[in-house]
Design a protein around this nucleic acid. Structure first.
Lengths: 170, 170
DNA sequence: ATATACTTATATCGAATCGATACATCGGAG
DNA sequence: CTCCGATGTATCGATTCGATATAAGTATAT
């Protein structure tokens, strides 16, 4: 997953390690550690997806190779572990994907969230009428899960609507 | 963190490994893997916080020791890495904490979420009026962060209000 | 009855990630 | 001039993950 993030960020422009950490952090959902980042850069370099060039001072600027660009394309279409983080990552780089494939990504996510919502509602209602009803704190946790999933779907629907009108208007 | 989760779950009643995974998963925010769980059980056993007793069939039922109970108390009050997961875990076991200390946990969380909200709003507004404005997908991500943090604070405020009236009514 | 497949259950492996720390340079504040 | 915080690369040990192995019980279908 970090490979995905790094390649996505390097697609825009070459960056050095520290800057990658900052840029990824600024996306808001992943404060990656150096202990993950630097080994990942080695990994990607060894695989030929990125190249190190010496930048100003101590900096090592990494830039994507053609193979790396192809790899990013693969990751954008193929992989999907269903995690929140991966979806957010995919969304951050969705502009890289051909427009006709974008809606599918959003709709797949919507299906996954619907499933999650059903599960969350089921366990909330189940717990409420259970013999050994969970305490109010655990009930609150379940309610939060229902509500935040609903909110996420609503947000996603706006995004989907925007995508459709962008497609129509083009 | 897994230690915290295991001790919290074992406080209610003895459980075997597979059951712990299920119970933790049912809390809704962490699908822990066996590759984390079984080593953690060894770890806790070696430290004397839990004890294995043979249960039905292949099962190994683990129960908490007195030292383990004390350790859970420490984890409930001391540790706080500010992560969402840790808060949710703490909340799931908040009933274990003496009532007079519960409100503080919720209020600390509220402060942390307020900080997060300010950060999220700042980067959203900053990006919107930026020279190189992020694409609509990244803008949507930022907006999501703002909204979901607001929703979380609203949910937490209900919980805090409930806690206050419970304290007053007691 | 018996093959098939799913759930329960414990366990381990390698890889990814984390949090802490080390170390060095640079710019600004006191 | 010196101290301090931000920048920058790097590594260490511990934790966690995802995949996989193994095997027993249980239900379903043939």
């Amino acid at each position: 997953m970090l490979d995905f993030a790094i390649l996505g960020l390097l697609h825009d422009e070459p960056r050095h390690g520290y800057e990658l950490k900052r840029a990824l952090g600024e996306l808001g959902f992943w404060q990656v550690s150096f202990g993950s980042l630097y080994p990942a850069l080695r990994r990607l370099e060894k695989q030929g997806f990125i190249e190190a060039t010496k930048g100003e001072g101590r900096r090592k600027a990494y830039r994507m190779t053609d193979t790396g660009d192809a790899r990013l394309g693969e990751l954008l279409t193929d992989s999907d572990d269903g995690s929140d983080r991966e979806f957010q990552l995919r969304l951050a780089f969705l502009g890289r994907l051909e427009p006709q494939h974008r809606l599918g990504v959003l709709e797949d996510r919507r299906t996954a969230l619907q499933d999650r919502l059903h599960g969350a509602r089921r366990s909330f209602k189940g717990a409420r009428s259970s013999a050994r009803k969970p305490d109010r704190y655990r009930m609150a946790l379940m309610e939060r899960r229902v509500r935040s999933t609903e909110a996420d779907i609503a947000w996603l629907d706006e995004l989907i609507a925007g995508e459709r009108s962008a497609r129509a208007g083009a």
